[in-house]
Structure formats: C-alpha cells, structure tokens
C-alpha cells in the first residue's frame, strides 16, 4: 500500500482520484457502486448564480471513442445548491468541490462567495471553459485577459482553494495557465471538452440542438496529456489532469506528464464503479514497481 495523499493548494486529497464535474452528479447518484470515501474528491455539477435550463434536447451524441454533449450548464442555481443539495452531501467523507460558472466576472464572484460560506466545501473549480453556453463559459477561457478578469474577481471573493478549469479550444493553453496563475489561482484543471460537431446526413442537419458540443472520452486523451505536459512546464501551481481517463494506466500517464491529481469523467458512464478501480489500480501499480509514494511519479517523465 503506497502513500497516495497529494495536495492541491491547501486541499489535502487522500488520493489523486477525483470525479469530473457533470459526470458524477452530486456523488449520491453513484453511491450504490462506489464507496465515495475512497475517492480523493468529487467535483459536482456546474453551478451558476441563477438557475439555468440548459440547452434543448438532443444534447448528446456518441462518437468513435467518445461522446459530444451540449448540456449547457443546466442547474437550479447556487441558492438551491446551498439550501437543498449541500445538506445532503456535506457529511460525505470525501472532498466535495463545486464547479462554478457564470456570465460575467461579477456573477462568478457572487456565486463563489456564496459557496465560500459553506464549511464543508473546501474548494471550487472555476469553469471558464464550457463550450456550450453563449454567454460566459468558454468565452472567458480562450483569452488571457478574459481568464484573468474572472480569476481576479473570484480570487477577491473566495479565500479557499481555487482551481481554474481550462479550455483546450485555444492556441496556447500554457499562456492561459500562466495568466490564471498570475491572478492567484491555486491550481488549474485541464482539459474541458473539445468543441466538436456531428451531422445527420438524412436530415441534413446537425445532430445536437445547438449544432456544436464538447467532445470527451478516450478519443481526447492524447490531446489532454499533451496539454497537461505543456502546462506543467509553464506553471508552478498544481495541475489536475483530465480528458479520456478510462483506467489506472491512463491516470498514471497524466501523473507522469505532470498532473498532481486526475479527474474521471466520461468513463463513469461506461463503468459507474470505475473511479474506485482507478484508485486501486494506481496503488497496485505503485506497489508492483516499488514506488512508495505517488508523489514520486508526478511529473516524472524522462524526456
């Protein structure tokens, strides 16, 4: 049994495995399959200051080795989260991190401030990278100035661990990562989904209701790995890696590329029990290779 604990800012995770926003509900949906107290953390669904209905159906399409979604941040708003959801999850024995999105820096900051008041939420993941909403979301995450404007506003309002989730739909993700680091982010997580599209040739129309959606799943893993590796060489703050992780081997690849922790997303849809299996698999690999501490493989690529 290797030492698995890692730190993201002031957040101490019992192991590097978290679940990605929008793929694991509030954790409770998966409690029949996963011992939630075995996970490093759970990142819950994107939350906004006001309720959002999300995009019309259809919102999802399976692609080779992946899936497109354009859910569009459907949620009941931060007040509903604080009053109705939080009491149900505050006693979970794992870190619950709230993914926060918004339409303006002020929205993000207000939403973050309300979550800061919740004792048992030690961190937020700032979503400046959702490709499926017109206002805000990815619009902030594709320029250094936009990303900085949101992170500055939230940093002033949010004293706990601030993770900023980056978009891969940019020319240089390392530049964006540096910009948010300079504004006080405690960590970055990457990658959010890649903007994609599917076409129905019989109807001569896009499959998804808003034409485009975000691609996730094993198809995106090589891109995500490359971006984690690039960002690891550009910033000093910890990186949370995600994008197509299906098993422990994939997770270890991200750790070696420079991620301090990982998030499991789309794989939860294929195997609802996968997150716990990734924890076990990392542990087993470390044991098999005589590595006593997971931190010894973080960024340990030989190149």
């Amino acid at each position: 049994m290797a030492q698995l604990q890692v730190n993201i800012g002031n957040l101490s995770l019992r192991n590097p495995v978290m679940t990605a926003s929008g793929t694991f509900g509030y954790g409770l949906e998966y409690a029949d399959f996963v011992r939630l107290d075995r996970l490093g953390g759970i990142i819950v669904k994107g939350t906004t200051l006001r309720p959002r209905e999300g995009n019309p159906y259809p919102r999802m399409y399976e692609t080779a080795g992946g899936m497109l979604n354009c859910v569009g941040l459907q949620n009941k708003g931060v007040d509903y989260f604080c009053q109705e959801i939080y009491p149900q999850i505050k006693n979970l024995d794992t870190h619950v991190v709230v993914n926060v999105s918004g339409s303006s820096p002020e929205d993000y900051a207000e939403c973050a401030a309300r979550i800061a008041a919740l004792d048992r939420i030690p961190a937020i993941e700032l979503n400046i990278s959702c490709p499926n909403v017109k206002d805000g979301g990815m619009a902030f995450g594709v320029t250094c100035e936009g990303a900085a404007s949101v992170v500055r506003a939230v940093r002033a309002a949010y004293p706990k661990t601030l993770i900023v989730k980056l978009s891969p739909n940019v020319t240089s993700i390392a530049d964006i990562a540096r910009a948010v680091e300079d504004c006080g982010a405690d960590a970055v997580s990457l990658i959010n989904t890649l903007m994609g599209m599917a076409v129905d040739i019989e109807r001569r129309s896009p499959v998804l209701s808003i034409a485009t959606g975000g691609l996730s799943g094993p198809a995106v893993k090589p891109i995500a790995l490359r971006m984690v590796w690039q960002v690891a060489r550009a910033v000093k703050i910890p990186i949370v890696g995600l994008g197509g992780i299906m098993n422990a081997t994939d997770a270890i690849e991200f750790l070696m590329a420079g991620a301090t922790a990982v998030e499991i997303g789309t794989a939860n849809f294929v195997d609802p029990a996968v997150s716990e299996k990734v924890v076990d698999g990392i542990d087993a690999w470390l044991d098999a290779h005589g590595v006593g501490d997971v931190r010894d493989i973080i960024g340990a690529l030989k190149c």
């Binding site: 509900g25 949906e29 669904k45 159906y57 999802m60 979604n69 459907q74 849809f269």
Partner: peptide, 17 residues
C-alpha cells in the same frame, strides 16, 4: 427513449421538456 449516457440522472443528457 431519449438518447442517454449515464442512466443515473448525473449527466443531464436525456432531458425531456
């Protein structure tokens, strides 16, 4: 029979208005 992913109410893909 809306197209769905997780089947558990987590991904919010299969919504009906």
């Amino acid at each position: 029979e809306n197209r769905m992913a997780c089947g558990l109410g987590a991904c919010l893909c299969c919504v009906e208005d």
